[in-house]
Design a protein around this nucleic acid. Structure first.
Length: 320
DNA sequence: GACCAGGGTTAGA
DNA sequence: TCTAACCATGGT
């Protein structure tokens, strides 16, 4: 049985293994995806064990843990798919599977046709080698808007290790979890829970007063319905979403483009002031100084339309 | 101990 | 519009 409606995820039931399979697009590199997902030992919102990805998901009032792994159809270079299974004894409904498949498809960006990106960049003198090495890596998203905004704010102006530490504290203090024999799977805190907090609840995590205030304000706006991913998408185009995000306190150009990239999947999202982006280019250009913003703009000109992917790949170039 | 970190706001020119 | 001061703390 296959669902194949325009905006619906595509998946097939695999009754033998008690899960569903999601067919993979032409360019998909599972191992590079796993490398990205395991980039920090402090990551608390998913886990990778023996090549399988585990992640808790809230579906309405229901909470599940997904297990994702790759299947190679027929071994050689046949069509592959992702096998997704859920924990628990109760058989999930069709709607649950549909939501899970939609989440995975969005999370791993399985719908984007990357061939124009590779045609444009694979032989580029500056990034061709990098792009070819990472070919099939897709931008891992942050589908939840509140999580994307909080993560971006937490990560402002601090190193990634500390950012992960802060996120872990935030999640383990205010989030909910699903316990199994082997692991504890955490869900990101909801805006409602954070909106009920005071600044004094957040400061002990070592968030700055500014960041704590930004997060509290956003939580209130999202809990009250003033701000939502749905309402932003209803603006109809990315520039309109960008303008709206920029009006929010604590959300500047960098955070706006970061969220456009990881949550809204704007392919032209371009956090040009990003320190890691600048460092990746500095390294690639064999410079002693980070290239200035106007030079970065010029460098990116040939890749217009794929700024988000180039940025994501440049970030990966810094991974050891 | 200096310098940097996947920035943003505010005040002042 | 542009710049400088400030936030504030872990990593290296």
């Amino acid at each position: 049985m296959t669902s194949r409606t325009k905006d619906m995820p595509v998946f097939n039931f695999d009754h033998e293994r008690g899960g569903v399979t999601i067919p993979l697009p032409r360019d998909f590199h599972y191992q590079e995806t796993l490398r990205y997902l395991t980039r920090s030992p402090l990551e608390c919102l998913h886990q990778v064990v023996d090549g399988r990805v585990y992640k808790a998901l809230a579906i309405g009032s229901e909470r599940v843990v997904m297990e994702i792994c790759e299947e190679n159809g027929g071994g050689k270079s046949g069509p592959s798919s992702l096998l997704v299974r859920l924990n628990g004894d109760v058989a999930p409904t069709f709607d649950t599977w549909n939501t899970v498949a939609a989440y995975v498809t969005d999370w791993l960006d399985l719908r984007t046709d990357l061939s124009p990106f590779y045609e444009r960049t694979a032989h580029d003198p500056l990034i061709g080698t990098l792009v070819t090495a990472l070919r099939g890596l897709r931008i891992v998203g942050i589908p939840d808007l509140f999580e994307a905004l909080c993560w971006a704010i937490i990560g402002q102006q601090i190193n990634l290790t500390f950012a992960y530490t802060l996120k872990k504290r935030f999640v383990e203090r205010f989030g909910t979890s699903i316990q199994t024999e082997a692991h504890t799977y955490w869900l990101f805190p909801t805006p409602e829970v954070i909106a009920a907090c005071t600044i004094n609840d957040l400061l002990p995590l070592q968030l700055t007063t500014q960041k704590a205030t930004y997060i509290l304000t956003l939580a209130h706006q999202m809990a009250s319905g003033t701000l939502s991913k749905h309402s932003l998408l209803a603006q109809g185009n990315f520039p309109a979403i960008e303008r709206h995000l920029l009006t929010l306190h604590g959300i500047g150009p960098w955070t706006t483009h970061y969220v456009l990239m990881r949550c809204f999947r704007d392919p032209t999202a371009f956090p040009i002031g990003d320190a890691a982006l600048q460092n990746a280019l500095k390294q690639l250009l064999h410079r002693t100084q980070k290239p200035p913003a106007d030079e970065i703009k010029q460098l990116f000109a040939p890749w217009h339309g794929w700024e988000a992917y180039v940025t994501f790949y440049l970030w990966r170039s810094l991974a050891t």
